[in-house]
Amino acid sequence: MKEYTIALAGNPNTGKSTLFNALTGLKQHTGNWAGKTVTLASGYYRYKNIPLKIVDLPGTYSLFSNSEDEEVARDYIVFEKPDVTLLVLDATSLERSLNLALQVLEMTDQVLICLNLMDEAKKKGLKINAKQLSKNLGVPVIPISARNREGLDVLSDTLLKMCSGTIKTKPYKMKYREEIEAKIIKLEKELSEILGPDYPARWLAIRFLDGDSKLIAALKNKLASNGEGGGVHGSTTALGRSGGGHSC
């Protein structure tokens, strides 16, 4: 049976590792502070007898090449192409979370959003309209509370439907200022000619425009390893260095 791969992405300290533990039954160390997870950890679970592999990405505020953990998370989403990228948003500080969400939506269509810490948000007197958010972003939005194990079944259900293609998404793509848009569109056309349909051309165009030299290097690396028959599983340099597990 096909095994699906799910990447967990989100801001630091939004409970990604807690959700990871709740789903996989593993005991990845969790704590209330930013930067707890600095490497990729993966675990497995079965839902309705379908095997799912969950990869816990480092928490980041953006996906520009600012530091090693941002590169690790970004390269995984773009180059390893998980079946679904599960974005964990902090319901108590949605604005900051959405910033990252908009960037991920540019990178891949297969995005599922879960609003974690709904219990905290409620305590803080925040009322969040998940349906409205889902309509605006064009992807499913599931409210959950990972540490109370609330909403996990709905989440797994939706995950599976997305993996099997039953749910089709139409993610919102960021629009930028006119002069930038014009440049993006021109670049996007050239890039999709060069790279074909396997890469998110619009997002890459924005990165080229932004002069993100580390991403360009990673992309060339990836293409070279594919050319040598490395296949889709050839890992990029950034990933290769950080595949280690957690000690302690």
Binding site: L94, E95, R96, L98, N99, A101, L102, K124, G125, L126, K127, I128, N129, A130, Q132, L133, N136, L137, M174
Partner: peptide, 14 residues
Amino acid sequence: KSRELCSKSVVIQD
């Protein structure tokens, strides 16, 4: 955009 999305879907009660 984040701010705009947020104001559409979040109500502060307290």
